[in-house]
């Protein structure tokens, strides 16, 4: 995420000065070697972001000449695209998309974390066929989201497996709360294994003697889980949850494929921005995307600050300094 180039320390003695000069030379050389990467990053990440932000401040008014029928555009700079979030016809659509994005993220990541930790606990036990279970758990994660969207679409058809098993006749892909549930189920199915695997990695870092000590002290399994397993697996788990949240906030393909374009019950900020862009309102599409970008950045910031998600591998103790 962030690249820090260590500045050469101040020379303490004359003897070290020579060495430091060489360090400074190395630093310059490193910068030179890195510059192509930085340039490419600026071009493929920096430029689009700046350009999108600028686009979001361009307001276009279309008019049609009543005699020739030709479109006449005027463009000026303003905050109208952002003002439309708070008032006007599209405001309710925006907040609906914002609400869906948030609820998908909160509900989805919560359920995924619970299931993922359960999966990890099971996979962490020594039993026959453990390798097979670990591999098969990854299958949903390996399937491209658009394809899993199609699979779940078949399951949620009016005569699909879901209705047959539940003995219901719900039209899952029509507008309504059931569509939201359908997307959530498909999302959890796909991404719980991701959290499961990362949590498993965390569990395997815990040394066995800690558990032995707990056993000797007479701690039950429930207490062991809350007092030992969870705190020690936390660094890995927090990173997994953060990644999932950032991922869930920009959810696009699942609601789009499973339920359909521009269906309000499952419209997220990403699909709404896509809809605006496909109707040639690039200004408002860019504004919504920018808001989403800031929202994700805020969530990531809060997460790192409050929960101390350890992204750059400083270790648990590095958090405090």
């Amino acid at each position: 995420m962030t690249t820090t180039v260590q500045a050469p320390r101040k020379p303490a003695t004359a003897g070290r000065a020579r060495k430091n000069r060489r360090n400074a030379g190395t630093g310059r050389f490193a910068a030179l070697l890195l510059s192509p990467t930085v340039l490419v990053l600026a071009l493929v990440i920096g430029y689009p972001i700046v350009s999108a932000v600028r686009l979001s401040f361009l307001v276009t008014h279309n008019g049609i000449n009543p005699t020739t029928g030709m479109v006449e555009n005027t463009t000026h700079v303003g905050v109208d695209n952002y003002a439309a979030i708070f008032s006007g016809d599209t405001a309710s659509q925006f907040w609906n998309a914002f609400w869906n994005t948030t609820t998908f993220t909160v509900a989805g990541v919560f359920v995924e974390t619970v299931l993922g930790v359960l999966m990890a606990l099971i996979m962490n036990r020594a039993f026959r066929g453990r390798g097979l279970v670990r591999a098969s758990v990854l299958v949903p994660w390996a399937i491209p989201t658009a394809i899993s969207g199609l699979l779940w679409k078949w399951i949620f058809q009016s005569e699909g497996i879901a209705n047959t098993l539940l003995h219901t006749h719900i039209l899952w892909t029509t507008e309504g709360f059931h569509a939201w549930v359908a997307v959530l189920v498909a999302d959890v199915w796909k991404t719980a294994p991701f959290i499961g695997l990362l949590a498993l990695a965390g569990l395997q870092m815990i040394p066995g003697d800690v558990y032995e000590a707990a056993k000797v002290d007479g701690s039950g399994p429930w207490r062991t889980f809350w007092r030992i397993t969870l705190p020690l697996a936390r660094p890995a788990l927090v990173v997994a949850v953060l990644f999932r949240m950032l991922d869930a906030l920009r959810m696009f393909d699942l609601p789009f494929v499973l339920i359909g374009a521009h269906k309000h019950s499952v419209e997220t900020l990403s699909t709404f921005a896509w809809y605006e862009a496909s109707n040639l309102r690039y200004g408002s599409a860019a504004a919504y995307s920018t808001v989403l970008f800031l929202y994700i950045a805020l969530v990531a910031f809060v997460f790192v600050k409050v929960l101390g998600a350890d992204l750059v591998g400083r270790g648990v103790s590095g958090r405090k300094s």
């Binding site: 361009l58 000449n65 020739t68 006449e72 555009n73 005027t74 463009t75 000026h76 700079v77």
Partner: peptide, 14 residues
């Protein structure tokens, strides 16, 4: 598009 306030007129089609 950065040229603000400009008017894009497509009236060339007579």
């Amino acid at each position: 598009v950065a040229a603000c306030g400009s008017s894009d007129n497509n009236s060339s089609a007579g």
